[in-house]
């Protein structure tokens, strides 16, 4: 038995490093194993079996319509054909490109709007908390509901065209959601609306973490607001900016709910992103072997990215804490 140090000794506080202290005081104990076991089981349950199964299915032409149960999918063995098809599928590349296009356009806009709002909220002003809460509301709306809100707003007889008509003085009747380019724009607008508040929230937390003495000192020394931003604020919140950008990029890569309710990927494939593409070929075309190959490709790519990001995050975390 390894748990001889069951009668734990308290460690003299202050002298020992914190990370070390619990190590000695708590020791290795079975309780730790029991407590982490359910989580381990759930992770295995959702990771291991699905992974192995997808690997198997992806090497076959199996679909739920073949009448063969999936364990017998080897009867439809097709080797690497699904993977070859994938690399040759223009619809896949299109979906990938549109996903990246949405990320490239929406993330920077969300970032700069969020940063601007965060800078406005750095000082105290009357009713600040009320405005702050109200500006966070969009990110708390259920995404599917947000999708429906924008579906309503972008109707050709809807309020957005009405506002444009008022502003331009002529009658505007753009059919946003049935024009391929405008539908993509509408999707991006809805994402900016919903997730700029998240950027605002994260960046403001970062800005407020900057010691105010430094800012005051800089002001006394005659630094302009712009200089203060560049020389004091920016270096301090760089790490937080990276985290905010990473989170939005990851989440946008998965974009589905809002978009699917607004346009269902249409018109045609004009707003079909990776998630919508997978959803459609899973539920409509039912080519599950092919979907499995695609899913594995995505899982593999993202695992590599996750490993790198995790490493980066840990490093940044230490920097933020320091």
């Amino acid at each position: 038995m390894s748990n001889v140090d069951d009668t734990a000794k308290p460690v003299a506080s202050g002298t020992v490093e914190k990370t070390d202290s619990h190590f000695h005081a708590y020791g290795k104990n079975r309780l730790g194993l029991y407590l982490t076991l359910p989580a381990q089981i759930l992770v295995l349950f959702i990771a291991l079996f699905p992974l192995l199964m997808q690997l198997y299915i992806s090497l076959t032409d199996w679909t739920p319509l073949t009448g063969v149960r999936w364990p017998q999918a080897y009867q439809l063995w097709s080797g690497l054909a699904n993977y070859a098809d994938l690399l040759d599928d223009d619809r896949f590349y299109g979906a990938l490109w549109r996903t990246f296009f949405i990320i490239i356009v929406a993330v920077p806009i969300e970032f700069f709007l969020g940063l601007a709002m965060a800078l406005l909220f750095m000082d105290e002003f009357p009713a600040k908390r009320l405005f702050y809460s109200a500006l966070l509301v969009p990110m708390m709306i259920v995404p599917a509901v947000a999708g429906y809100m924008f579906f309503l707003l972008f109707q050709s007889g809807g309020p957005i065209n009405q506002l444009l008509s008022l502003a331009l003085g002529t009658k505007v009747a753009i059919s946003w959601l049935s024009d391929p380019d405008l539908a993509l724009a509408a999707v991006i607008i809805s994402d900016i609306w919903q997730w700029t508040p998240l950027m605002f929230l994260i960046l403001l937390a970062g800005l407020l973490g900057v010691p105010s003495e430094q800012l005051k000192a800089a002001t006394l020394l005659g630094a302009s607001p712009w200089q203060r931003f560049l020389t004091i604020l920016l270096p301090k919140i760089k790490a937080i900016m990276v985290i905010a950008l990473a989170i939005r990029t990851i989440e946008l890569f998965k974009i589905f709910d809002t978009l699917y309710i607004m346009t269902a990927g249409g018109p045609g494939v004009a707003t079909e992103t990776i998630s919508v593409f997978i959803f459609k070929i899973t539920t409509q075309e039912l080519v599950w072997g092919y979907v499995a190959a695609l899913a594995l490709l995505i899982l593999f790519t993202l695992s590599v990215i996750a490993g790198l990001a995790m490493y980066f995050l840990q490093r940044k975390k230490r920097e933020v804490a320091a």
Binding site: P50, K254, I278
Partner: peptide, 22 residues
Amino acid sequence: GKNLPLALIQLRLFPPLAVMIP
């Protein structure tokens, strides 16, 4: 459970659709 932090981050990272068939 030192594997859990990374495993769970990955779980969050993946599009749910990528494991939907299994």
